[in-house]
Simulated assay, not measured.
Amino acid sequence: MSIVITGANGKLGSLIIQQLLQKVSPHEIIACVRHLETGKHYVEQGITVRLGDYDQPDSLEQTFAGATQLLLISSSHLDDTVRIRQHAHIIEAAKKCKVEHILYTSFAFPEAGSAPLSYLHLATEHAIRTTGIPYTFLRNALYTDFVEKLDLNTAIAQGELDIYPGEWKFNTVTRWDLARGIAAVLSEPGRHKNKKYELTASSPWTFTNLAAALTEFTGRSVSLRQDPQIKNWIFGFLSKIDTRSASNDLEQLIGGPLTSLKESIRPFISI
């Protein structure tokens, strides 16, 4: 078995490989990086490193040669037009190389969203289906990292977390938990073909829960303040994606509970 992982030096990719090493031999892993010299740490672990630049389609056929499984980690490019073109390069090369199984890090419940992000992932899923290659869609929820945009340290200092009015609920997860779930799928070849998983929290949390977690974490009382004049762009984005729907797919793949909200926000608190 050979597991090819694109974006291997990214935050999610590196965590997936870290988890995968606990389940399979390093000789079964092929890490794709944009610059070969940045993969030296993988070579030292016995992992094969190949060039995997989404913008160099001519090189990808050699990169994917012999792949039993190909994990396409979605591009992080800021321009969605560029991203869909990059994904197409990967998919076309996978088909030419007769890759046996394509896995793709999509986005949770994209059918319910109206953001360009949702359309991008649906389009990529469709393109993968048209190849006729067995697939697995790993529909990742929004990272809990988004709370960094809420300026939690100021909220703690002032005792108030400012939010835009609404009945907000969030199915977010950590990259760490996603990596655990995705590594579990990759280590069980054949079991997950032609399936899609909604990798979200099993139950959504609210801003009330977040304020309570901040209070518990710091010992300082933090309350909510709804402000219809707030200008933070994050609320506009959140309103265009499905942050409410939940699934226990990720817990089942991991075989246990996900990281708690309190622990998930720890990296973003410095007070």
Rank of each mutant, 00 (worst) to 15 (best):
F146Q: 07
F146C: 13
V147D: 06
E148W: 14
E148C: 04
K149S: 13
K149Q: 15
L150Q: 11
L150V: 14
D151S: 05
D151P: 00
L152M: 11
L152V: 02
N153E: 11
N153R: 01
N153A: 05
T154P: 11
T154W: 00
I156V: 12
I156P: 06
A157C: 01
Q158S: 15
Q158C: 02
G159Q: 05
G159M: 14
E160Q: 13
E160C: 01
D162S: 13
D162T: 15
I163V: 09
Y164C: 02
Y164E: 05
P165S: 01
G166F: 14
G166Y: 06
G166I: 06
E167A: 15
E167Y: 05
E167V: 10
W168R: 07
W168P: 01
W168C: 02
W168S: 07
K169D: 08
K169F: 09
F170K: 03
T172I: 00
T174L: 01
T174Y: 03
R175N: 13
W176R: 12
W176H: 01
D177M: 13
L178K: 01
L178M: 03
A179N: 03
R180K: 14
G181F: 11
G181A: 00
I182Q: 03
A183S: 11
A184W: 05
A184G: 04
V185D: 00
S187F: 11
S187Y: 00
E188Y: 07
E188A: 14
E188L: 08
E188R: 14
P189V: 07
H192L: 10
H192M: 08
H192W: 09
K193F: 08
K193I: 12
K193P: 00
N194G: 01
N194W: 01
N194E: 04
N194R: 08
N194S: 09
K195I: 08
K195V: 03
E198L: 05
L199H: 07
L199M: 03
T200S: 14
A201M: 02
A201D: 13
A201V: 15
A201I: 03
A201Y: 09
A201Q: 08
S202D: 12
S202N: 12
S202C: 06
S202R: 14
S202W: 05
S203I: 14
S203H: 15
S203D: 10
S203L: 10
S203N: 13
W205R: 03
W205K: 04
T206M: 08
F207M: 02
